[in-house]
């Protein structure tokens, strides 16, 4: 069998249908090579002799196989400027749209959840300072939350290794970081102080609600790990945490359409994101 033909067309369709229903991850034909390689890795790891036997294992989630495949398919690693097309969309479209409907002078609020060790919220801060010409004209508040207090402590310390900075130019690293050892850099105090880190479980309304309303939420590669009910609850918490007309950005393979009808799909030039309607839908 040729390297690109691990799965026949029907098997690929069945796998994609299953992953979409189970996790909300949407893979098109264009992602076939990537998906097949991840499946091949998992088949080897599980000793599955055929796709049929691997798919049977996946369907019954034997030994947590669904999570293992998700991890393989989402590159479970965080680094600065990851999926930066969404940051381009943030400064090109989303913030402009929010400013159009917000009262003048009101703070723009951005939420990074889950924020892990801080790469995403600090990336947003740097991106705004570097790429948004209007950054001096508006107050922007960045809140970063995670359920794991250990990663929050690491995020607050703002110390990162070389891999986390691999997508930043030397110029940006020099501008926003100081050396913290031979292989580590610490983000500038001023930038560290500009991000507020909080503990929050996105499935717990009592923990999301006190954070108030946001203009843009980054919630990437999290909902795919939840079961259907938790995903619905999380989507409703995200909806409640958005100002009307506010946006939520999911991971590149995730689709809110599978999870909840509460949001509108917005297809911008650089990213597909989801919006809480300005007016609640009726009927």
């Amino acid at each position: 069998m040729a390297e690109s033909e691990l799965l026949d067309a029907e098997e690929y369709r069945r796998l994609c249908d299953y992953l979409y229903r189970r996790t909300g991850m949407a893979f098109t034909e264009a992602r076939r090579y990537f998906v097949e390689r991840r499946v091949e890795d998992r088949m080897i790891a599980t000793g599955s002799s055929s796709f049929a036997s691997y798919f049977a294992r996946l369907r019954v989630n034997m030994e947590g196989e669904v999570e293992k495949l998700i991890n393989a398919a989402t590159v479970n690693e965080t680094y600065f400027y990851r999926e930066d097309h969404q940051f381009t969309c943030l400064t090109s479209n989303m913030l402009q749209e929010r400013l159009r409907v917000k009262p003048p002078g009101e703070v723009l609020r951005i939420w990074s959840v889950p924020c892990s060790t801080g790469e995403e919220p600090y990336s947003i801060a740097i991106w705004l300072l570097e790429n948004w010409p209007e950054v001096d004209a508006h107050d922007v508040e960045i809140v970063a939350s995670d359920i794991d207090t250990n990663v929050l402590n690491a995020a607050r310390s703002g110390i990162f290794g070389k891999r986390a900075l691999m997508r930043l130019s030397a110029g940006l690293t020099g501008k926003y970081f100081t050396r913290a050892g031979p292989e580590h850099w610490q983000i500038l105090d001023e930038l560290r102080q500009s991000v507020r880190f909080t503990a929050a479980n996105i499935v717990a309304q009592t923990e999301t609600r006190p954070h108030g309303l946001f203009d843009v939420i980054f919630c990437r590669n999290l909902l795919i790990y939840f079961d259907d009910t938790s995903r619905r609850i999380a989507a409703e918490n995200l909806y409640e945490s958005l100002a009307p007309g506010g946006y939520v950005c999911l991971g590149h393979a995730e689709s809110m359409s599978r999870i909840s009808p509460l949001f509108e799909v917005c297809r911008f030039a650089d990213a597909i994101v989801y919006r809480r309607p300005l007016e609640a839908k009726h009927g």
């Binding site: 009101e106 703070v107 609020r109 801060a125 705004l128 300072l129 950054v135 001096d136 004209a137 508006h138 107050d139 922007v140 508040e141 960045i142 001023e190 930038l191 102080q193 500009s194 991000v195 507020r196 909080t198 609600r209 006190p210 954070h211 108030g212 309303l213 409640e240 100002a243």
Partner: peptide, 16 residues
């Protein structure tokens, strides 16, 4: 720097 950090959870938040 224009990036700000609010002092309490509900500042600028329009809490429900």
């Amino acid at each position: 720097m224009p990036l700000i950090r609010s002092k309490c959870d509900n500042a600028a938040a329009g809490v429900l």
